[in-house]
Amino acid sequence: MTTSPGSALDPAAPLLDADAARHYRTVTRRALGRPAPGGTGAGPLAAFVLTHPLAEHTVAALAAGHGPYSLVHLAQEIEVHHPPRPGAPLDASAALDAVRLEPKGTRLVLTTTLTDPATGAAQARLTAHILLVGLRTAEPHGTLVPMAAVRQESPGDPVSRDLGIDREWIADYGHAAGDLNPVHLDPDAAREAGFDDVIAHGMSLVALAVEEAAERYADGDTDRVLAVGARFARPVLPGEGTALDLTPSAAGDTVAFTVRSGGAAAVKGGWLRLGPAAGADR
């Protein structure tokens, strides 16, 4: 297992101050047609934004010297033990739990963890499944554990909402999240990578699901989203016609979601676990 410690507050990423957290959520919510958020909660996607630079560094270190490759984000899980608070000091670590060679390249399971530097207590744990297409020289180890799935025995009424995904929103989200990969910003770079146009960030679609689910089922409080997971099935292009489908459980503690674009599922197997409202019995 390869472990890389580092600061979560990497200079390449936006600091988790109150203004940056609010800006990130405000930009995200624009694609839902919703106004800027109330309150000060940052939500579970703040943990992804903070750890993303360290995750990128860890993958780049594994691939260094092995030739060109392209990275495909296959799936992501986030579990929050304590919601990150703007201005609070945090440490981060990254571990490659599994590496497996496949016909198209190398598949990784990468775990990043946010901890409280004073106590060492875990604040959030993130697990990503990644395929490095074209790279087959890494040393295999570990076991690929399937992503979690949520089965709703008694689903509630499904709802659907159209999403406003355009080039401007994709670019604004990338700057707010600190993910400036050219395939999201530059049409020429996207075409060189095999896409017809720039593509939306996969985690931006998850962020939309978190915001909409919180509005509908958690009184707008994204900090009540304690865990989220999803698999990425296909890219989303601007102006393609994209919709978010949500299905709450009858008990109100989980929400299943799918993102459809261009007539096919772009994000599937999505789920969120909700905690009780502040002051409610646990």
Rank of each mutant, 00 (worst) to 15 (best):
Q152M: 14
Q152P: 00
Q152L: 15
E153M: 12
E153I: 12
E153H: 11
P155H: 07
P155S: 09
P155K: 08
D157S: 14
D157G: 06
V159K: 12
V159H: 12
V159Q: 15
V159N: 07
S160H: 14
S160R: 15
R161S: 12
D162P: 00
L163A: 04
I165T: 02
I165V: 06
R167E: 12
E168P: 00
E168F: 05
W169Y: 10
A171F: 04
D172W: 10
Y173P: 03
Y173M: 04
G174K: 09
A177P: 01
G178W: 02
D179A: 06
L180Q: 14
L180N: 13
L180S: 13
N181G: 08
P182Q: 07
V183H: 03
V183Q: 05
L185R: 06
D186F: 10
P187F: 13
D188V: 15
A189D: 04
A189L: 09
A190L: 13
A190N: 04
R191M: 09
G194I: 09
G194V: 09
F195R: 03
F195A: 02
D196K: 13
D196F: 04
A200G: 03
A200P: 03
H201G: 00
M203P: 00
S204E: 05
S204F: 13
V206G: 04
A207N: 07
L208E: 05
L208Y: 02
L208N: 02
A209K: 04
V210I: 12
V210F: 04
